[in-house]
Computed example of a mutant assay.
Amino acid sequence: MTRRRSKVVTPADAAGLVTNGSTVALGGWTFYNTPMTVVREVIRSGARDLRLVSSPGAIGPDLLIAAGRLAEIATPFLTMEQFGFAPAFRSAAREGTLKIAEIDGPGLASALRAAADDLPFGVIHDLGTDLPSVNPEWYRPFEHPLAEGAKLYAVPAAVPDVALIHAQRGDEYGNLQFLGATFFDQLIARAARTVIASVDEIVPGEELRADPRATKIPGFLVDAVVPASEGAKPCGSQGLYPPDLEHLAEYSRLAATEAGRREYLERHVLATAGKV
């Protein structure tokens, strides 16, 4: 019987799957479950002109902006929570150096669901926001005989070339267990062409099978698994460790200026090359 192939790779090998101009989906939610080990390695890889489709995020997407890796971003919001605005995002928006697609949660979910179902677009109700006026490429008026009188929008499918997600546990074949919420990660994994998952712990398959309800993403959706103890830090990993609030406060302070962003990148990204 043919043995299944292990999908375990190094952070550098995983980052090598992200090439210039790729559309990248980033999972997690603000200070939780962001695959920061892989994000830092993507920055070190030098990949540029990336188009990011992000869950509501914090330091993960903001750090990619600070490092000059993004050409475009589509996200419901970026925030450093109690520490204020996402500083690199705010600077890029003010200076016009980043193309920004303003979307909401239903729009993101519909776009990912359409991609997951191999459909050209998804459909959402008009929720009364002004997003269609600022992002007409994403929110397109839609009429259908089966929905007579309903005000709807068609949202184009978002098909990421590569997805970056983080789970608490997984086996070498890519079966992933979450000890808390999955946020948009299940949709992201279904929508993307290639899925990279960092995990805090690699465990034997029989250990996962002892608690099958916790396996939220099956291995056939995952292409690469990166073992990374505390791989979400300075973000938290639900059920295992909390966000490092001191570090996040430091980032918020430094990333408010161009010089501070360079200092942070040198100290916490470039100087830590080779570390998981």
Score class of each variant (00 low, 15 high):
Gly84Lys: 00
Asp62Leu: 04
Leu152Thr: 06
Glu143Cys: 10
Lys7His: 08
Pro243Lys: 07
Thr129Lys: 02
Gly260Thr: 06
Arg90Trp: 15
Val42His: 12
Leu245Pro: 00
Leu179His: 03
Tyr173Glu: 07
Glu230Trp: 14
Leu245Gln: 11
Ser198His: 10
Thr182Phe: 04
Ala167Gln: 05
Ile188Ala: 04
Tyr173Leu: 05
Glu148Ser: 13
Arg190Ala: 15
Arg3Ala: 10
Trp29Ala: 08
His166Phe: 08
Thr129Ile: 07
Phe183Leu: 08
Pro145Ser: 09
Leu63Phe: 10
Gly260Val: 04
Thr257Ser: 13
Ser45Arg: 15
Val222Leu: 08
Thr37Asp: 08
Ala197Ile: 15
Ile188Met: 02
Ala67Ile: 07
Thr37Ala: 11
Gly84Glu: 02
Ala271Pro: 07
Gln168Gly: 15
Ser55Ala: 13
Asp49Ala: 14
Val225Asp: 00
Val53Gln: 08
Ala273Cys: 10
Gln238Met: 11
Glu95Pro: 04
Leu127Tyr: 12
Gly96Arg: 04
His144Phe: 15
Arg267Gly: 04
Leu119Ser: 11
Ala158Pro: 00
Ala163Cys: 12
Asn175Met: 04
Arg90Glu: 13
Thr75Arg: 03
Arg193Asn: 13
Arg113Lys: 14
Val155Tyr: 09
Met36Trp: 08
Pro212Trp: 02
Ala154Phe: 07
Leu50Thr: 08
Ser237Leu: 05
Ile65Met: 09
Arg267Asn: 13
Ala224Arg: 00
Leu146Lys: 09
Leu164Gln: 10
Lys7Pro: 13
Leu152Arg: 05
Ala116Trp: 14
Gly231Leu: 12
Phe89Arg: 06
Lys233Thr: 09
Ala14Glu: 06
Leu179Gln: 01
Val222Tyr: 14
Ala15His: 08
Asp244Gly: 07
Glu41Ala: 08
Tyr241Ser: 02
Asn20Phe: 05
Val276Gly: 01
Lys275Pro: 01
Ala47Glu: 05
